[in-house]
Design a protein around this nucleic acid. Structure first.
Lengths: 171, 171
DNA sequence: GGGGCCATGTAATCGGTTACATGATTGA
DNA sequence: TCAATCATGTAACCGATTACATGGCCCC
């Protein structure tokens, strides 16, 4: 039920088609809430049924522009004011950690070195994005920077944790 | 397909029933890979069909003890040696961050203060668990400590991030 | 006898993923 | 004319969640 709010958030700015939304979405929020094309179109139809949005214009190639309704705006603001309930971790990696004993010490170390290395690569990718959006001052870039900071800190934390785990294994 | 590996990991130690597995599971791995009772029983049946495990004994009240097979052991070790592909973040909270502009500055601050406070509470809960397992030296406690360390660092990171974001909003 | 625990299962629903299907318009 | 892009949709499947259903066994 959250893709719905992402789409409402985008439409709160200005009317757009599913196609437009996908484009903006992919280059911003998709990093914190991935969604596929089929999901977006399906959700838009459901939102239209629920009268959170309406078709404000129809164009060439079956294009439909959607505009947010008052109901939609209310829904969006209510959601923004509701703190998300802390969701449990669900991590493939951490699950492996519980079973470190079933493999050799070398394989156990590899669990952490592989993760550390991929976190380091990820960190580099994020740094590039930081550079790219540094000069932008639109709302999604400004706010996106805060989300990005989360990513930076998270990867740093993961690198440090993997290092800590390796030292612990070695002792 | 990962609950499957969690169950294989537990059965690699010793045969157990679904009921037994649920108990151990809830007090350990559930923190990194939540699963419900119905999911566990359904998965055990599928695993039995796939011959990763077999019914090694049947007891009172329809109790079935499962034992891991050689196929199962191979599957478990293969999985342990395969680094999980980095999964994208999917965060309700970070999505809200993109739409901070649609609410008042006070409501925007609340997004972060609420998160910071719940992270602080979480941190306290984890500290208690650290104390509880400090004296245990069984494999799941020893390895669980590494997973727990991840949780500690993650909550600390979130507290720091929320604080950083609040300062940024205020400036 | 009855409460509490042991023990397993089914059904409905939901969000997400992958794949497939279709076709219009635009510009080189 | 033909490739690229615009544009929307359906269907099958999967894992997870919630709720419901059933009943046996043990000990006080």
């Amino acid at each position: 039920m959250t893709l719905r709010h992402a789409l409402l958030g985008l439409l709160d700015d200005e009317p757009a088609s599913g196609y437009d939304l996908m484009k903006v979405f992919n280059s911003s929020m998709a990093n914190v809430w991935p969604a596929t094309q089929s999901q977006v179109y399906t959700e838009l139809n459901k939102m239209s049924d629920a009268e959170l949005i309406t078709v404000s214009a129809e164009g060439a190639r079956g294009r439909k522009d959607y505009a947010i309704t008052d109901t939609g705006r209310t829904e969006l603001r209510d959601w923004m004011r509701t703190p998300p309930k802390p969701k449990a971790i669900r991590s493939d990696l951490l699950l492996r950690v519980f079973f470190l004993d079933v493999v050799s010490p070398a394989d156990a170390r590899a669990v952490f070195t592989a993760h550390r290395d991929s976190a380091i690569a990820q960190r580099k990718r994020l740094d590039e994005i930081v550079g790219q959006i540094a000069s932008n001052d639109d709302p999604i870039s400004t706010n996106g920077r805060i989300a990005l900071e989360f990513g930076l800190r998270k990867t740093d934390m993961e690198i440090g944790w993997a290092q800590w785990a390796l030292e612990r294994l070695d002792s």
